[in-house]
Design a protein around this nucleic acid. Structure first.
Lengths: 159, 159
DNA sequence: GTATCGGCTGGGCATTCTGCCCAGCGGAGG
DNA sequence: CCTCCGCTGGGCAGAATGCCCAGCCGATAC
Protein backbone atom coordinates (compact mmCIF):
# COMPACT_ATOMS: atom_id res chain seq x y z
CA UNK A 1 0.00 0.00 0.00
CA UNK A 2 2.78 2.41 0.80
CA UNK A 3 5.45 3.03 -1.78
CA UNK A 4 9.09 3.85 -1.24
CA UNK A 5 11.39 6.22 -3.00
CA UNK A 6 12.45 3.71 -5.65
CA UNK A 7 8.82 3.00 -6.51
CA UNK A 8 8.20 6.70 -6.86
CA UNK A 9 11.22 7.19 -9.10
CA UNK A 10 10.05 4.29 -11.20
CA UNK A 11 6.58 5.74 -11.63
CA UNK A 12 7.92 9.19 -12.42
CA UNK A 13 10.31 7.76 -14.99
CA UNK A 14 7.52 5.75 -16.53
CA UNK A 15 5.30 8.80 -16.66
CA UNK A 16 7.95 10.83 -18.41
CA UNK A 17 8.96 8.15 -20.91
CA UNK A 18 6.16 5.63 -21.17
CA UNK A 19 7.64 3.69 -24.06
CA UNK A 20 10.78 2.92 -22.10
CA UNK A 21 11.71 -0.72 -21.54
CA UNK A 22 12.50 -2.53 -18.32
CA UNK A 23 16.17 -2.80 -19.18
CA UNK A 24 16.52 0.88 -19.90
CA UNK A 25 14.69 1.70 -16.67
CA UNK A 26 17.09 -0.41 -14.67
CA UNK A 27 19.97 1.50 -16.24
CA UNK A 28 18.44 4.89 -15.48
CA UNK A 29 17.56 4.00 -11.91
CA UNK A 30 20.85 2.29 -11.24
CA UNK A 31 19.35 -0.99 -10.06
CA UNK A 32 19.25 -4.52 -11.44
CA UNK A 33 16.74 -5.42 -14.10
CA UNK A 34 15.14 -8.05 -11.89
CA UNK A 35 14.49 -5.42 -9.26
CA UNK A 36 12.67 -3.17 -11.67
CA UNK A 37 10.65 -6.09 -12.93
CA UNK A 38 9.75 -7.19 -9.40
CA UNK A 39 8.78 -3.64 -8.37
CA UNK A 40 6.62 -3.19 -11.43
CA UNK A 41 4.88 -6.49 -10.86
CA UNK A 42 4.26 -5.58 -7.26
CA UNK A 43 2.91 -2.13 -8.08
CA UNK A 44 0.54 -3.62 -10.61
CA UNK A 45 -0.65 -6.50 -8.47
CA UNK A 46 -1.20 -4.12 -5.56
CA UNK A 47 -3.27 -1.95 -7.83
CA UNK A 48 -1.11 1.13 -7.40
CA UNK A 49 -0.50 1.10 -11.12
CA UNK A 50 -3.71 0.07 -12.81
CA UNK A 51 -2.37 -0.02 -16.31
CA UNK A 52 -0.82 1.83 -19.19
CA UNK A 53 -3.80 2.63 -21.31
CA UNK A 54 -3.37 5.17 -24.08
CA UNK A 55 -4.25 8.72 -23.09
CA UNK A 56 -6.61 9.99 -25.76
CA UNK A 57 -7.20 13.70 -26.18
CA UNK A 58 -10.92 14.38 -26.75
CA UNK A 59 -10.05 17.68 -28.40
CA UNK A 60 -8.00 15.88 -31.04
CA UNK A 61 -10.98 13.63 -31.69
CA UNK A 62 -13.09 16.66 -32.44
CA UNK A 63 -14.52 17.27 -28.97
CA UNK A 64 -12.80 20.44 -27.79
CA UNK A 65 -15.50 21.53 -25.33
CA UNK A 66 -15.47 20.18 -21.79
CA UNK A 67 -18.12 20.82 -19.16
CA UNK A 68 -19.07 19.66 -15.71
CA UNK A 69 -22.72 19.04 -14.94
CA UNK A 70 -24.23 18.75 -11.50
CA UNK A 71 -27.36 16.63 -11.56
CA UNK A 72 -30.16 16.46 -9.06
CA UNK A 73 -31.74 13.03 -9.00
CA UNK A 74 -35.25 12.03 -8.07
CA UNK A 75 -35.42 9.77 -5.03
CA UNK A 76 -34.66 6.16 -5.84
CA UNK A 77 -33.82 6.84 -9.46
CA UNK A 78 -30.06 6.67 -8.89
CA UNK A 79 -29.41 3.29 -10.49
CA UNK A 80 -31.50 4.08 -13.55
CA UNK A 81 -29.79 7.40 -14.05
CA UNK A 82 -26.38 5.77 -13.79
CA UNK A 83 -27.29 3.21 -16.41
CA UNK A 84 -28.63 5.93 -18.66
CA UNK A 85 -25.54 8.11 -18.38
CA UNK A 86 -23.27 5.14 -19.01
CA UNK A 87 -24.78 4.83 -22.48
CA UNK A 88 -23.85 8.38 -23.46
CA UNK A 89 -20.38 8.42 -25.05
CA UNK A 90 -19.90 12.10 -24.26
CA UNK A 91 -20.14 11.36 -20.54
CA UNK A 92 -16.51 10.72 -19.72
CA UNK A 93 -16.91 10.34 -15.98
CA UNK A 94 -19.65 10.17 -13.39
CA UNK A 95 -19.55 10.50 -9.63
CA UNK A 96 -22.17 10.44 -6.96
CA UNK A 97 -21.45 13.06 -4.37
CA UNK A 98 -22.64 14.29 -1.02
CA UNK A 99 -25.12 17.13 -1.00
CA UNK A 100 -28.79 16.66 -1.85
CA UNK A 101 -28.26 13.29 -3.56
CA UNK A 102 -26.35 14.82 -6.42
CA UNK A 103 -24.20 13.52 -9.19
CA UNK A 104 -21.34 15.21 -10.94
CA UNK A 105 -20.36 14.31 -14.46
CA UNK A 106 -17.77 15.39 -16.98
CA UNK A 107 -19.00 15.98 -20.49
CA UNK A 108 -17.38 16.76 -23.80
CA UNK A 109 -18.93 18.13 -26.97
CA UNK A 110 -17.98 19.15 -30.49
CA UNK A 111 -18.85 22.79 -29.87
CA UNK A 112 -20.78 24.99 -27.51
CA UNK A 113 -23.82 24.44 -29.69
CA UNK A 114 -23.25 20.70 -29.64
CA UNK A 115 -23.06 20.83 -25.88
CA UNK A 116 -26.75 21.63 -25.90
CA UNK A 117 -27.44 18.37 -27.70
CA UNK A 118 -25.32 16.44 -25.20
CA UNK A 119 -27.02 18.05 -22.23
CA UNK A 120 -30.42 17.38 -23.73
CA UNK A 121 -29.50 13.78 -24.10
CA UNK A 122 -28.14 13.62 -20.56
CA UNK A 123 -31.11 15.24 -18.88
CA UNK A 124 -33.68 13.75 -21.24
CA UNK A 125 -34.39 11.12 -18.67
CA UNK A 126 -37.13 11.22 -16.17
CA UNK A 127 -35.01 10.50 -13.09
CA UNK A 128 -33.16 13.79 -13.43
CA UNK A 129 -34.79 16.75 -11.75
CA UNK A 130 -32.35 19.49 -12.51
CA UNK A 131 -28.97 20.00 -14.15
CA UNK A 132 -26.52 22.80 -13.67
CA UNK A 133 -23.64 23.02 -16.11
CA UNK A 134 -20.30 24.78 -15.96
CA UNK A 135 -18.26 25.03 -19.14
CA UNK A 136 -14.53 24.64 -18.79
CA UNK A 137 -12.51 27.53 -20.15
CA UNK A 138 -8.99 26.75 -19.12
CA UNK A 139 -7.28 23.76 -17.58
CA UNK A 140 -4.36 25.20 -15.60
CA UNK A 141 -3.66 21.87 -13.92
CA UNK A 142 -4.35 18.88 -16.16
CA UNK A 143 -5.05 15.60 -14.43
CA UNK A 144 -1.81 14.68 -12.69
CA UNK A 145 -0.58 12.17 -10.19
CA UNK A 146 3.19 12.62 -9.98
CA UNK A 147 3.18 15.15 -7.12
CA UNK A 148 0.98 12.84 -5.09
CA UNK A 149 3.25 9.89 -5.80
CA UNK A 150 6.23 11.87 -4.57
CA UNK A 151 4.30 13.00 -1.54
CA UNK A 152 3.30 9.44 -0.70
CA UNK A 153 6.90 8.27 -1.04
CA UNK A 154 8.14 11.02 1.25
CA UNK A 155 5.46 10.33 3.83
CA UNK A 156 6.61 6.76 3.96
CA UNK A 157 10.29 7.68 4.28
CA UNK A 158 9.54 9.86 7.28
CA UNK A 159 6.76 7.75 8.73
CA UNK B 1 -8.09 14.94 -36.77
CA UNK B 2 -10.77 12.43 -37.62
CA UNK B 3 -10.05 8.79 -37.04
CA UNK B 4 -11.26 5.81 -38.98
CA UNK B 5 -12.44 2.42 -37.88
CA UNK B 6 -8.98 0.88 -37.89
CA UNK B 7 -7.66 3.66 -35.68
CA UNK B 8 -10.52 3.08 -33.29
CA UNK B 9 -9.91 -0.64 -33.15
CA UNK B 10 -6.25 0.03 -32.54
CA UNK B 11 -6.98 2.36 -29.63
CA UNK B 12 -9.51 -0.01 -28.12
CA UNK B 13 -7.09 -2.91 -28.40
CA UNK B 14 -4.37 -0.83 -26.83
CA UNK B 15 -6.69 0.19 -24.03
CA UNK B 16 -7.59 -3.40 -23.29
CA UNK B 17 -4.05 -4.79 -23.44
CA UNK B 18 -1.63 -1.94 -23.00
CA UNK B 19 1.48 -4.08 -22.79
CA UNK B 20 0.85 -5.56 -26.20
CA UNK B 21 3.50 -5.13 -28.88
CA UNK B 22 3.19 -3.76 -32.39
CA UNK B 23 3.63 -7.19 -33.94
CA UNK B 24 0.92 -8.76 -31.84
CA UNK B 25 -1.41 -5.86 -32.62
CA UNK B 26 -0.90 -6.36 -36.34
CA UNK B 27 -1.86 -10.00 -35.89
CA UNK B 28 -4.98 -9.20 -33.91
CA UNK B 29 -6.13 -6.50 -36.28
CA UNK B 30 -5.32 -8.49 -39.37
CA UNK B 31 -3.10 -5.86 -40.98
CA UNK B 32 0.60 -5.57 -41.70
CA UNK B 33 2.99 -4.54 -38.98
CA UNK B 34 4.10 -1.47 -40.89
CA UNK B 35 0.51 -0.30 -41.06
CA UNK B 36 0.07 -0.52 -37.32
CA UNK B 37 3.33 1.30 -36.80
CA UNK B 38 2.37 4.04 -39.24
CA UNK B 39 -1.08 4.46 -37.67
CA UNK B 40 0.35 4.65 -34.19
CA UNK B 41 2.91 7.23 -35.25
CA UNK B 42 0.21 9.28 -36.90
CA UNK B 43 -2.12 9.12 -33.91
CA UNK B 44 0.66 10.24 -31.63
CA UNK B 45 1.98 13.02 -33.85
CA UNK B 46 -1.57 14.29 -34.35
CA UNK B 47 -2.00 14.36 -30.60
CA UNK B 48 -4.94 11.99 -30.55
CA UNK B 49 -2.92 9.66 -28.38
CA UNK B 50 -0.92 11.77 -25.99
CA UNK B 51 0.99 8.96 -24.38
CA UNK B 52 0.91 5.81 -22.35
CA UNK B 53 1.57 7.07 -18.89
CA UNK B 54 0.95 4.72 -15.98
CA UNK B 55 -2.49 5.04 -14.43
CA UNK B 56 -1.94 5.37 -10.73
CA UNK B 57 -4.77 4.73 -8.29
CA UNK B 58 -4.75 7.36 -5.53
CA UNK B 59 -6.67 5.00 -3.26
CA UNK B 60 -3.87 2.45 -3.49
CA UNK B 61 -1.43 5.19 -2.53
CA UNK B 62 -3.39 5.82 0.64
CA UNK B 63 -5.70 8.55 -0.64
CA UNK B 64 -9.11 6.89 -0.83
CA UNK B 65 -11.16 10.08 -0.46
CA UNK B 66 -11.97 12.14 -3.54
CA UNK B 67 -13.75 15.47 -3.57
CA UNK B 68 -14.60 18.25 -5.94
CA UNK B 69 -14.25 21.82 -4.77
CA UNK B 70 -15.79 24.84 -6.42
CA UNK B 71 -13.78 27.96 -5.70
CA UNK B 72 -14.79 31.58 -5.93
CA UNK B 73 -11.85 33.79 -6.79
CA UNK B 74 -11.28 37.43 -5.97
CA UNK B 75 -11.05 39.62 -9.06
CA UNK B 76 -7.64 39.49 -10.70
CA UNK B 77 -6.28 36.85 -8.38
CA UNK B 78 -6.71 34.03 -10.88
CA UNK B 79 -3.07 33.57 -11.85
CA UNK B 80 -1.92 33.60 -8.23
CA UNK B 81 -4.53 31.09 -7.21
CA UNK B 82 -3.55 28.78 -10.06
CA UNK B 83 0.08 28.91 -9.03
CA UNK B 84 -0.88 28.23 -5.44
CA UNK B 85 -3.04 25.25 -6.25
CA UNK B 86 -0.39 23.80 -8.53
CA UNK B 87 1.86 23.43 -5.49
CA UNK B 88 -0.63 21.27 -3.59
CA UNK B 89 -0.05 17.59 -4.41
CA UNK B 90 -3.58 16.65 -3.40
CA UNK B 91 -4.97 18.87 -6.15
CA UNK B 92 -5.14 16.42 -9.03
CA UNK B 93 -6.84 18.67 -11.51
CA UNK B 94 -7.91 22.28 -11.85
CA UNK B 95 -10.25 23.95 -14.29
CA UNK B 96 -11.47 27.47 -14.71
CA UNK B 97 -15.14 27.47 -15.57
CA UNK B 98 -17.91 29.78 -16.60
CA UNK B 99 -20.11 31.13 -13.85
CA UNK B 100 -18.98 33.90 -11.48
CA UNK B 101 -15.30 33.45 -12.31
CA UNK B 102 -15.12 30.10 -10.61
CA UNK B 103 -12.69 27.26 -10.55
CA UNK B 104 -13.34 23.59 -10.11
CA UNK B 105 -10.73 21.28 -8.70
CA UNK B 106 -10.45 17.62 -7.91
CA UNK B 107 -8.94 16.76 -4.55
CA UNK B 108 -7.88 13.60 -2.81
CA UNK B 109 -7.20 13.00 0.86
CA UNK B 110 -6.17 10.22 3.23
CA UNK B 111 -9.50 10.34 5.07
CA UNK B 112 -12.48 12.57 5.60
CA UNK B 113 -10.60 14.14 8.47
CA UNK B 114 -7.56 14.62 6.30
CA UNK B 115 -9.74 16.28 3.71
CA UNK B 116 -10.14 19.15 6.13
CA UNK B 117 -6.37 19.65 6.14
CA UNK B 118 -6.29 19.60 2.34
CA UNK B 119 -9.13 22.08 2.04
CA UNK B 120 -7.53 24.35 4.61
CA UNK B 121 -4.38 24.32 2.57
CA UNK B 122 -6.28 24.96 -0.64
CA UNK B 123 -8.35 27.86 0.63
CA UNK B 124 -5.63 29.22 2.92
CA UNK B 125 -4.79 31.72 0.28
CA UNK B 126 -6.06 35.22 0.14
CA UNK B 127 -7.29 35.15 -3.45
CA UNK B 128 -9.96 32.60 -2.64
CA UNK B 129 -13.23 34.04 -1.45
CA UNK B 130 -15.27 30.93 -0.89
CA UNK B 131 -15.04 27.19 -1.40
CA UNK B 132 -17.82 24.66 -1.68
CA UNK B 133 -16.86 21.01 -1.51
CA UNK B 134 -18.66 17.85 -2.58
CA UNK B 135 -17.27 14.53 -1.41
CA UNK B 136 -17.38 11.70 -3.90
CA UNK B 137 -19.16 8.61 -2.66
CA UNK B 138 -19.32 6.37 -5.67
CA UNK B 139 -17.82 6.46 -9.13
CA UNK B 140 -20.30 4.63 -11.35
CA UNK B 141 -18.49 5.70 -14.52
CA UNK B 142 -14.72 5.93 -14.10
CA UNK B 143 -12.89 8.19 -16.51
CA UNK B 144 -13.27 6.57 -19.90
CA UNK B 145 -12.66 7.40 -23.52
CA UNK B 146 -13.42 4.25 -25.49
CA UNK B 147 -17.10 5.01 -26.18
CA UNK B 148 -16.13 8.42 -27.49
CA UNK B 149 -13.44 6.92 -29.71
CA UNK B 150 -15.96 4.54 -31.20
CA UNK B 151 -18.43 7.35 -31.64
CA UNK B 152 -15.85 9.49 -33.43
CA UNK B 153 -14.95 6.61 -35.74
CA UNK B 154 -18.59 5.99 -36.61
CA UNK B 155 -19.24 9.68 -37.24
CA UNK B 156 -16.41 9.66 -39.74
CA UNK B 157 -17.64 6.51 -41.47
CA UNK B 158 -21.02 8.05 -42.02
CA UNK B 159 -19.91 11.61 -42.52
C1' DG C 1 24.25 -14.25 19.35
C1' DT C 2 22.50 -16.83 15.62
C1' DA C 3 19.36 -18.56 12.17
C1' DT C 4 16.08 -17.48 8.69
C1' DC C 5 13.83 -14.88 5.31
C1' DG C 6 13.06 -11.46 1.71
C1' DG C 7 14.96 -8.37 -1.43
C1' DC C 8 18.62 -7.09 -4.54
C1' DT C 9 22.55 -8.28 -7.55
C1' DG C 10 24.71 -9.75 -11.76
C1' DG C 11 24.92 -13.11 -14.94
C1' DG C 12 23.35 -16.44 -18.75
C1' DC C 13 19.98 -18.42 -21.95
C1' DA C 14 16.66 -19.06 -25.95
C1' DT C 15 13.00 -16.66 -27.89
C1' DT C 16 10.84 -12.77 -29.50
C1' DC C 17 10.27 -8.15 -30.88
C1' DT C 18 11.93 -3.84 -32.64
C1' DG C 19 13.58 -0.50 -35.99
C1' DC C 20 14.59 -0.14 -40.54
C1' DC C 21 14.92 -1.39 -45.09
C1' DC C 22 12.82 -2.92 -49.69
C1' DA C 23 9.77 -3.88 -54.01
C1' DG C 24 5.22 -4.40 -55.41
C1' DC C 25 0.26 -3.61 -55.54
C1' DG C 26 -4.09 -0.99 -55.89
C1' DG C 27 -7.32 2.71 -55.24
C1' DA C 28 -8.13 7.82 -55.38
C1' DG C 29 -7.50 12.01 -57.35
C1' DG C 30 -5.41 15.21 -60.75
C1' DC D 1 -3.92 8.05 -68.14
C1' DC D 2 -0.61 8.81 -64.64
C1' DT D 3 1.01 9.79 -60.12
C1' DC D 4 0.58 9.69 -55.28
C1' DC D 5 -0.16 7.44 -51.03
C1' DG D 6 -1.15 3.82 -48.09
C1' DC D 7 -0.92 -1.05 -47.34
C1' DT D 8 1.42 -5.50 -47.98
C1' DG D 9 4.70 -9.06 -46.94
C1' DG D 10 9.22 -10.03 -46.51
C1' DG D 11 14.21 -9.78 -44.70
C1' DC D 12 17.86 -8.20 -41.65
C1' DA D 13 20.84 -7.10 -37.45
C1' DG D 14 20.45 -5.63 -33.00
C1' DA D 15 18.15 -5.33 -28.75
C1' DA D 16 14.90 -6.54 -25.21
C1' DT D 17 12.10 -9.89 -22.93
C1' DG D 18 10.92 -13.71 -19.88
C1' DC D 19 12.99 -16.92 -17.14
C1' DC D 20 16.43 -19.16 -14.72
C1' DC D 21 20.31 -19.29 -11.16
C1' DA D 22 23.73 -18.61 -7.05
C1' DG D 23 25.32 -15.35 -3.96
C1' DC D 24 25.08 -11.40 -0.86
C1' DC D 25 23.14 -8.60 2.73
C1' DG D 26 20.21 -6.45 6.18
C1' DA D 27 16.33 -7.06 9.11
C1' DT D 28 13.69 -9.72 11.82
C1' DA D 29 12.74 -13.68 14.82
C1' DC D 30 14.30 -16.92 18.05
Amino acid sequence: MAIDHLDARLIVLLAREPRIGVLEMSRRLGVARGTVQARLDRLQSQGVVRGFGPEVDPAALGYPVTAFATLQIRQGQGPDVRAHLATVPEVLELHTTTGSGDMLCRLVARSNADLQRVIDRVVGFEGIVRASTAIVMENPVPLRIIPLVEQAAQDRERG
